[in-house]
């Protein structure tokens, strides 16, 4: 039986968990799905100059069933909220979410009747990117940040159940324009 001190060159000992996390973080497949302005900056991130392929996340998939990273790029309206929820549910586990830009993080400048004040009311978010819209560099930083979180186990993959949030405004208590 080989002594544990006799390390064979080229062989690394690790845990299955670590290897899985390394694999998951190194090849994120984003969901090709844009909402508003941020989607254009997301396209810039894919194009030659910023080149998201350097970080192993260039395989944009048009179907939620083939993707494991949802980049919510833009404002989420009341009409779009249920659609996003459904798309997220259609993504297979493990899956992660980046909220790109001020609108999808918190509603941004649109604090009104039409926009959901942060996509985290609908689906769980792992990384928030500030900016309106964020530069492509900021999105790249978010991707690397997410990779770190996946590797360290901070970002728990999979489906998390959110408490249903009751939002509602009434004519009396709502802010008037």
């Amino acid at each position: 039986m080989a002594n544990s001190h006799d390390v064979v060159p080229g062989v690394v000992f690790s845990t299955v968990d670590k290897v899985a996390k390394w694999a998951q973080s190194s090849s994120l497949w984003p969901f090709a799905f844009g909402l508003a302005c941020c989607a254009i900056e997301m396209m810039s991130t894919v194009a030659g100059r910023f080149d998201i392929a350097r970080f192993g996340a260039e395989v944009f998939r048009a179907s939620p069933r083939q993707a494991d990273l949802m980049i919510v790029a833009g404002r989420v309206s009341m009409k779009m909220g249920p659609v996003i929820k459904r798309l997220y549910d259609q993504m297979p586990d493990p899956k992660w979410v980046i909220a790109m830009g001020a609108c999808s993080s918190c509603g941004g400048v649109f604090n009104n009747y039409a926009i959901i004040q942060g996509v985290d009311k609908v689906i769980p978010v792992d990384v928030y990117v500030p900016g309106c819209p964020p530069n492509p560099d900021a999105l790249l930083y978010a991707v690397t940040r997410l990779q770190e979180k996946i590797r360290s186990g901070e970002a728990r993959p999979g489906h998390r159940i959110l408490e249903p949030v009751q939002t509602g405004i009434s004519i009396e208590s709502g802010r008037s324009s």
Binding site: Q117, V122, T167, G168, S170
Partner: peptide, 24 residues
């Protein structure tokens, strides 16, 4: 918090997520 603004019965405009869920 969003919950601090409860909709008065019959007066609400946005009916909350349980209604949106049934939209499909």
């Amino acid at each position: 918090t969003p919950q601090a603004l409860p909709p008065a019965p019959g007066e609400e405009i946005f009916l909350g997520w349980d209604v949106l869920e049934t939209q499909p």
